[in-house]
Design a protein around this nucleic acid. Structure first.
Lengths: 138, 138
DNA sequence: ACGTATTTGTACGTATGTATC
DNA sequence: AGATACATACGTACAAATACG
């Protein structure tokens, strides 16, 4: 049973989420591979399934995992993309092609960002997890 | 008690969310005003609080409401903004000023999009709820 | 400063439905 | 068909944030 502090200031579901996040970042849980099942995780952490589900939902919000009903929750393969916007750059969102949805592990309702630079180069990346940032701003 | 169909194909929490959404769009729930409390809504719809919370969470994802612990859930004042991107337009995200956060009813972790057009006009709008769309794409 | 009431947040349990293999 | 895994929905209890007297 893994280390959960019940009286802590940090909610249990966050502690679980952080632990799983550590597993992902340490490579113990690998991209495209499933997490242990929710029931298994309840035993591993000694918490209720509701709490496990909240932890997983939190990780999904962060874009680290993706859940598929009846199959499992999978580690997503991607890094945080930071796009520096400059004058002359064109950026737009569209639905991904089937091939893109496959290679990027996108859900049905997800979009991609297309960045077209003034030198003609084009970059396509998942819309979620991407951070669009202007130089000089936090 | 309001009209909920339990055996329906649509989950109860979605039915509740849609009903509240209708209330907002019909003006029965007004911008900047609180929703009835969760406990009140359980009685109004005859469902568990868990279900009400899920419905509210769904509306929050859509950007229609905003929840504050200890106070309540409030209707957000905003429309769906659609930004048509053209070549030469500069778009970036930054944290809102205090004044912007106030007038736009933004949470602490929310961002604004700044659209600078080639004619020099600048538009600031909440990043969530905004849809960036390229002409010719769905 | 303090307690109290209200409201949302967290966490537990249990049961059943739906999707996938 | 059966087993497994996630989804939904019910219930209960207590904690934390907020507002007010």
């Amino acid at each position: 049973m893994r280390e959960i502090e019940h009286g802590s200031e940090m909610p249990v579901y966050r502690q679980v989420a952080d632990a799983i996040r550590d597993d992902i970042e340490a490579g113990r849980l690998r991209p495209r591979r499933p997490l242990p099942s929710e029931v298994h995780l309840t035993q591993e952490f000694g918490v209720a399934r509701d709490t496990i589900r909240r932890a997983i939902a939190h990780l999904a919000e962060l874009g680290l995992v993706r859940t598929v009903a009846g199959r499992g929750t999978f580690v997503r393969a991607r890094g945080q993309a930071v796009v520096e916007i400059e004058p002359g750059v064109r950026i737009f969102a569209r639905r991904p092609t089937t091939a893109e949805r496959d290679t990027m592990e996108l859900a049905d309702d997800e979009w991609v960002l297309v960045i077209e630079r003034h030198d003609g180069s084009v970059e396509v990346l998942p819309a979620d997890g991407a951070e669009v940032r202007a130089p000089g701003h936090a």
